[in-house]
């Protein structure tokens, strides 16, 4: 039997900028996990990715010890970076904020592949396209 798990918590945080403030404090504090220790290690592990959102999946065990794994930035973050825009469109149907080429979609899908529930690259690309459309980004 695997070590008993108390909670699996996913956080989307700015790389290198975790603090004991929400969302980290309430998410870990309610399970008695050491908030400061998490912040320190997350910031150390993500220091080189400053400016990106680096999601983290934290597994807190019954003895309140924990491990975490870092994930690739959300597709929306990668799309914003690829297009050099700050945020998506507030009215994505009427107002388009940019066009993503098929090659860029594939590049993002490849980067995200290991974290997506996609069986192949085509399915991953469809997920990336869906996210792009929801941001008011067209696919070229």
């Amino acid at each position: 039997m695997a070590k008993k798990i108390r909670a699996i918590i996913k956080l989307q945080l700015q790389a290198g900028q975790a603090t004991p403030a929400p969302p980290v404090g309430p998410a870990l504090g309610q399970h008695g996990a050491n908030i400061m220790a998490f912040c320190k290690e997350y910031n150390e592990r993500t220091a080189r990715a400053a400016g990106s959102i680096i999601p983290v999946e934290i597994t807190v065990f019954e003895d309140r010890s924990f491990t975490f794994t870092l994930k690739t930035p959300p597709a929306s973050d990668l799309i914003r970076k690829a297009l050099g825009i700050e945020k998506g469109s507030p009215a994505q149907k009427r107002e388009k904020v940019g066009t993503l080429s098929r090659a860029q979609v594939k590049q993002i899908a490849e980067a995200k592949m290991k974290d997506l529930n996609a069986n192949d690259i085509d399915a991953a690309m469809r997920m990336v396209e869906g996210t792009a459309r929801s941001m008011g980004v067209e696919i070229g």
């Binding site: 918590i9 956080l11 969302p23 998506g88 996210t131």
Partner: peptide, 19 residues
């Protein structure tokens, strides 16, 4: 992911997802 992205726009400190 879509919901987290929307919440993150208003909460730049980050979001938590409990699955």
């Amino acid at each position: 992911d879509v919901a987290a992205d929307i919440l993150r726009q208003a909460c730049p400190g980050g979001v938590a997802i409990q699955s």
